[in-house]
Structure formats: C-alpha cells, structure tokens
C-alpha cells in the first residue's frame, strides 16, 4: 500500500535523484544542445569517471568526489582529444550526422568493453563516511549518499550556469551555439571554442561519475541505462538550456521514484522513454525551448 508518507519520501528522493540527473545530463546539454554533437557515448564517460573514483578510493582511500574533481582536467583533455579526432574526421568534411553518430556508438562500445575486460562484470563500490547514514527530519529520511551528490550536482550546474552566463569564454560558446557563421565572420576561432566546450562537457561526465558511484554500485555496462535518460532530459529541457535541463531532470527524477514506489523499480527505465516520446510528440522544443 502506498501511504502518503511513502509518497512524500518518494518525492524528496526523486528531487535528490533529479539533481544528480542534472549533473549527468549537463554535458549532453552542452555537446548536443549547444554544439549539435550527438555524443551518445556520454554515459560511458560517466562510468569512466566512476571507475577512476573507484580505483583511487580502493588503493588510497581518497574521497570519490574529491578524486573526480581533481581528475576533471584529465577528462577535459580527453574531451579535447576526442573532439579533434571527431572534427578532423567528420565535421570539417561536412559529412557529419550518420557517421558521427556511428563513431560515438563505436567509442561507446570500445570503452565499455575495455572496462569490462579490465574490471569484469562485478559491481564496484566505494567507501566513504557519508555512505550509510541518514539525516532525517519530520517523517522524511534522507540518505546522505543521495544528499551529498545532490549538493555536488547543484554546485556543478550552478558553476556552469555562471560560466556560460557571465564569463567571456562561456558567452563565446553560447554565441557559437546560436550563430556559428556570424561569429566566424567576426574572426572568432569557432573550432577552438567548440573544442573547449566539448572538453567541458566530458569533464562534467567525469565528475558526474564520482557522484554516481556514491549513489549506487557501478558496473561497466551501467551506462546503457543512462542513455535514454540523459537524452530524454536534454530534449525535455529544451536542448541547450541549463535551467531547462535542471527542471527536466528534477521532473524525471520525481516521476521515476514515484513510478518505482507504486509499480516497482523494474519499471523505472520505461519512464525516460515515455518522457522522450511524449516530448517529441507534443512539444519537440522542450519546456524551455524557444
């Protein structure tokens, strides 16, 4: 029986989960929404981040979230390297779409199988002080393993919001997203700007990976569950809008946890697909779309 109390708990957990989803999706919002690069391998970079956190935590006992923040520059560089390859092979020749999609699909499998060969199919987890205890008030129990990633995610997303709205480079990226041609006329190196933005996108994936492994144990193919989710959130949020992404992520998080509570957790993956199809059918421009 679903009680009112259970429902309240589901909503609160959903909000925490949704905040984390925002961090997971924000990189797709940048790459797909702003740069028009359909990086379907994004979730697999998140899993990479989780494994970096796992290795460092296991061998040195470091905090997983601090680890991925320190490792973020490496993910940034990885993103730049991938963008260069992608740009040279597909975008510069103007034959992007089909092959670019297949390229990231291939990348996804290569990374996933590499992780699988290195770590096997077992679930991996990390140990920190905030995994386990709950904080509670009134009738609500908040597991810290959800609260900490939520706070971290909100910090990450707010940081990016400020970056895109108020720094020179961030605004240059937004400008490229809106009118690349006009910007190239103003002698702006649009390729360098896009490369930087893609680096940022992959860096956020690495950081989100740290959050992910705090929330749940991770195995190499967990990324697949996130593909539908991130793109559903990105499209629902209106492609390229940070605010929209956060709102959509919160909505999806809440709907997913309520679905799990009422129908059972095995139904949760269907929520994102339904959200995606509904958005495409009713309002393809998303909630924050123009």
């Amino acid at each position: 029986m679903v009680t009112f109390n259970l429902l309240i708990n589901a909503v609160v957990t959903g909000i925490l989960l949704g905040g984390f989803y925002a961090a997971v999706t924000i990189g797709v919002t940048i790459a797909f929404g702003m740069l028009d690069i359909v990086n379907i391998a994004h979730p697999v970079f998140i899993i990479m981040g989780s494994f970096v956190a796992y290795i460092v935590n296991r061998h040195f006992g470091f905090d997983p979230i601090l680890t991925v923040i320190v490792a973020a520059p490496l993910f940034f560089l990885l993103g730049i390297a991938i963008f260069r390859f992608y740009y040279a092979a597909f975008e510069s020749s103007g034959k992007g779409s089909l092959r670019g999609l297949a390229f990231f699909f291939g990348i996804m499998f290569v990374i996933e199988v590499t992780l699988l060969l290195a770590f096997g199919v077992d679930y991996r987890l990390v140990q920190t002080s905030y995994i386990g205890p709950n904080i509670g008030f009134a009738h609500i129990d908040l597991p810290l393993r959800m609260v900490v990633p939520f706070v971290g995610s909100m910090a990450l997303v707010s940081g990016l919001y400020i970056f895109f709205g108020h720094t020179f480079i961030g605004r240059a990226i937004m400008a490229v997203a809106q009118d690349e041609f006009a910007l190239s006329l103003m002698a702006v190196d649009t390729v360098a700007v896009k490369q930087l933005a893609f680096g940022v996108a992959i860096a956020t994936a690495g950081i989100a990976g740290g959050f992910l492994i705090v929330i749940q144990p991770v195995d190499p193919s967990l990324g697949r569950e996130y593909i539908g989710r991130v793109f559903a959130i990105c499209v629902l949020g209106g492609l390229g809008s940070i605010t929209g992404t956060v709102i959509a992520a919160l909505i999806l998080g809440v709907v997913e946890t309520i679905t799990s509570t009422i129908f059972g957790p095995s139904w949760a993956p269907a929520v994102s697909f339904a959200a995606l199809l509904l958005t495409l059918a009713i309002r393809p421009s998303g909630i924050m779309g123009r």
Binding site: L101, G228, P269, F273, L280
Partner: peptide, 14 residues
C-alpha cells in the same frame, strides 16, 4: 533525424 536515432536507442531498453 537525430531524434529518431535517440528514440530507437531508448526503444531497445524500454
């Protein structure tokens, strides 16, 4: 076109 690609990706999972 990419919406179709993404939808098919999610279709298998759902």
């Amino acid at each position: 076109g990419v919406f179709f690609a993404i939808a098919t990706l999610a279709l298998a999972i759902v």
